[in-house]
């Protein structure tokens, strides 16, 4: 049976060696954990290259901005039909704690409102304990579709479960 646009999109980000993906996504080594309609989970493995403070070994804020921006972008892309990425309008990141060196950062995001002109998303980053996020973020997107590196555009809307 032919894959639905969501299944194609999911396969694109979850199958194969994601480190081979071009640009920042592959270079940071993002690992997609799940993609649902308007929701996504994305991991960033620790790397000493991402340390912002050499005295503590803590990861800088930048990789976390990249992680949550990307995770929210996946949530925004699937929040409407056809599935497609759109540019970030603005974002805000609140850092409530330091990332522990050596541990993976987990991001989870949801699109909580979709309007004609803005897709509103929010997300968190945590390490061991989801109930104590180290970052809380809001990312807004402009719903102008653009294609990224051959990601499916999801023209076929039939067979979508939700």
């Amino acid at each position: 049976m032919e894959k639905t646009p969501l299944e194609q999109f999911r396969a694109f980000f979850m199958e194969g060696d994601q480190r081979q993906r071009p640009g920042h996504f592959g270079r940071l080594g993002f690992r997609c954990q799940f993609i649902e309609i308007g929701r996504a989970g994305l991991d960033l493995p620790f790397s000493p290259e991402l340390v912002g403070d050499p005295a503590t070994g803590a990861v800088a804020g930048g990789p976390m901005t990249a992680l949550l921006d990307s995770c929210c972008a996946l949530a925004a892309a699937t929040a409407r039909e056809p599935i497609s990425f759109c540019p970030t309008l603005d974002l805000r990141m609140d850092h409530m704690g330091l990332a522990e060196p050596g541990k993976t950062l987990h991001a989870e995001a949801e699109a909580y409102r979709v309007t004609q002109s803005v897709i509103f998303t929010r997300g968190i980053i945590f390490q061991e304990d989801r109930s104590r996020p180290i970052v809380h973020g809001l990312v807004n997107f402009t719903p102008i579709a653009f294609k990224i590196g051959g990601a499916p555009q999801g023209r076929d809307q039939e067979g979508e479960g939700e």
């Binding site: 804020g61 930048g62 990249a66 949550l68 653009f146 990224i148």
Partner: peptide, 16 residues
């Protein structure tokens, strides 16, 4: 790079 098609820099890289 965040968007290889344009190409454009990743918003996170610019934020960082």
């Amino acid at each position: 790079i965040g968007n290889p098609t344009l190409p454009a820099l990743h918003g996170g890289a610019v934020g960082g």
